[in-house]
Design a protein around this nucleic acid. Sequence first.
DNA 1: ACAGAAGCTTA
DNA 2: GTAAGCTTCTGTT
Length: 986
Amino acid sequence: MKKGDHLFLVDGSGYIFRAYHALPPLNRKSDGLPTSAVLGFCNMVWKLMQDARNTSVGIAPTHFAVIFDYSSKTFRSDLYPEYKANRSAPPEDLIPQFGLIRQATVAFNLPCIEMEGFEADDIIATYCRLAREVGADTTIVSSDKDLMQLVGPAVRMYDPMKDRRISIPEVIEKWGVPPEKMIDLQALTGDSVDNVPGVPGIGPKTAAQLLEQFGDLDGLLARASEIKQEKRRETIIANADKARISRELVTLKNDVPLKEGLDDLVLHEPDGPKLIGFLKTMEFTTLTRRVAEATATEIGDVQASAVTVERADTAHGPDVGAGAPPRQPAPQSNDAAKPAQAVRGEDVPPQGDTPSLLSALRLEQASARKIDPSAYAPIRDAAALKAWVAEARDAGILAFDAETTSSDPMQADLIGLSMAIAPGRAVYLPLAHRNGNGDLLGGGLLENQIPVREALALLKPLLEDRSVLKIVQDMKYDIVVMSRHGIEVAPFDDTMLISYVLDAGTSGGHDLASLSEKWLGHAPAAKKELAGSGKNAIGFDQVDIERATAYAGEQADLALRLWQVLKPRLPAKGLVSVYERLERPLVPVLARMEQRGISVDRQILSRLSGELAQGAARVEEEIYGIVGERINIGSPKQLGDILFGKMGLPGGSKTKTGQWSTSAQLLEDLAAEGHELPRKIVDWRQLTKLKSTYTDALPGFINPGTNRVHTSYALAATTTGRLSSSDPNLQNIPVRTAEGRKIRTAFIADKGHKLVSADYSQIELRVLAHVAEIPQLKQAFADGADIHAITASEMFNVPVEGMPSEVRRRAKAINFGIIYGISAFGLANQLSIPREEAGAYIKRYFERFPGIRDYIEETKAYARENGFVETIFGRRIHYPEIRSSNPSVRAFNERASINARLQGTAADIIRRAMVHMEEALEKAKLSARMLLQVHDELIFETVEAEVEATIPVVRKVMENAPMPAVSMSVPLHVDARAADNWDEAH
DNA sequence: ACAGAAGCTTA
DNA sequence: GTAAGCTTCTGTT
């Protein structure tokens, strides 16, 4: 190696884990061998090696090595036994890929370096030093912060998954310190993943600031007494030794005795046939073809190579969608090592012929095509728009995204539309961009924008064309906006909902940015980069058209690419009917509900607000009188100090930040002991809560145009399949107390109309009786009996007739406990009884209802085996942490998975009811309109004369909602009532 | 201006 | 013990 050469060092071990978690699972078609990390690795290495031929574009390596960890035991474990001690075993389907990636390295003709007793990072540090000494440059292919200490003028890092270079400025930007201070920074912050202790309470921000002030760690420890903040000063002095040992742990060794010298790392041309043999064996069709083209090799001439697999486990869940009977068998798991299959003799076809192959192929294609926001063009005149419409018709597919001035679709003004018909082929149609000095009459409109009416008239036939599939991320928003302009968009696919059906419960959200990062490895531009945030934010109409084009074009382009990647995964995972029956058809239904809104009486709320203010003020004075000073009652901190410090009340538990707990439960207990202050505080809280959250906030949500309140329902926000409601949340309007219920009297029907409320009775317990097949519960529901009383009677051998209410109350708590994934701890809390007693109740309950214990155990086993549970309609809810070695994390995931099957099935049932409701009402010639959903309740508005006819129709749709997909063995029961306001209807 | 904790509302 | 969203306070940016 000589001056000017360029050494590439790939952190192989780091890459394996990162690729495994970042890339979607991929299994070899022929035998299910997991290969996603291998494919990611091969794509990355191939790309880097291609850059070597093209010096004008990329960085050209002359030397190249892939470095691996040898084993987890290194000199650091001797230094500090806890180092990396809390590492859990790698996931099952990753294990076989370690060996495969080493074999891939060999297939690429690259040196594969590892050394007993040292981590890959130490080897990398040593090569860095050697290269620097001969004047060569080094690029470390990794984004691990542990390697950032090596960055310098001749050493940089490259993150292959984000296509980002990390040199000195990037390190400073990210960590606030230059690379040479990274060691000291890590010594202070520690690393929970590797069990490096650091100084507790010191994070990167604080550490950077301290290093700035004191120069380095030694300076800081020597002059720690000068630190102003008392707590910080004490912890640093107390933990100085931990900081020093942490520094030793994070300092990389750059004098590892290496077997291969720099000159052994010279980059060789890949050996076409050898590499292709490997790739073919892995069944990476696209990459195989690409390599064959680049090396001028005939694929057909190459035999698949012999590849040894350490262990090839596969675990496929049953691929059945809605309409399937309830089931819960554990899928077969093959623990025996399978020999790698050779691929077919003839060439592998470039197009996939099965769902899973197609989805793998699409992913490979998506990661191969570059995203370039500067390539999108604006459409400035009608002729160009017409040409685009024609092109989109031919394509049969159109991704789009509406750009507006508000996140509330009922208030949003349409500013522009971006559209895409193929990856990279996107345009932006500006409609209402303005310069700063506009007036109310529409002045300030920028030139060369097609008038909104004209543009929408041209687009309407396309957006409503049954033969053109529209693709949108979060379609409900766009349906509401476009519908306000008289356009009923159809048919459509929604990438957010596809992701939700596929991956509910896995880490990461279903918003466009998360999906793009996850599937395309690309972080899209954020809106706040264009429009700012907070009070300095400008409307999208103020964004200049060039920047808007790049931003909006990318949104449409990404939606299209994501659709190409995600849609084929639905059939591959057997989730097509969940998407098509439970998700997609609900979108226009919810859009209409949101658009209708509900009437809220301002006067009632205003009067209530006054009453609450008076009540709160009175209680406030009483509290001040007792306390003797005017504290802020709303501050739990001040309140705790007063109650348990000054007043000397017996304090209960502390919160995790060390504050006294002032929870309602605790204050109630104190009140029961005869203290008057806690009672008053609970009262004050109730009054101020009702006032601030409801009576004062709701009027602000009344839309000035419609005079109604339009909530927003999120379809993909919960893990279980429930909806959520926000802005305002109309799913948590008070109902338990008489005071709170007054809020509901403000939700009213229009003149001449009534509100109809229809709610499922005990739906989750009925689902439990059905899925767990409990004869006594089924019978009780069939008889229309009191389910909690029957439970109590079974458990305590007391007749239902004349049963004390306390006995029934306990049974009821247990029934609810089951739905929540019961624990003795939780039940004890709920009933205020000792944990042993709660445990005895549970034991007794399981003796009487052994089917429920079986159901719980079965669900836990299934979730553990598969990483997800399913509702009876086939919706999947993932629990990736259910195999955690942390017992409390594991227990939490077990409870959640038990609950998810029940809550999720109930959510699916009401979704089905909502999907079928409009057609049923129309068929019965009824004008009732669905307005709200509150998990097990639907609220309608209908003309008075139709109330009697509407209720039976609504009831029937709701009670028969599972049919015909599932025939439940327990009847569903719906209570329905009509009144002038929500309180009386409920 | 934002983020997290604490607390409270619902099913 | 499950699932959510909103307000206030508090400390950091």
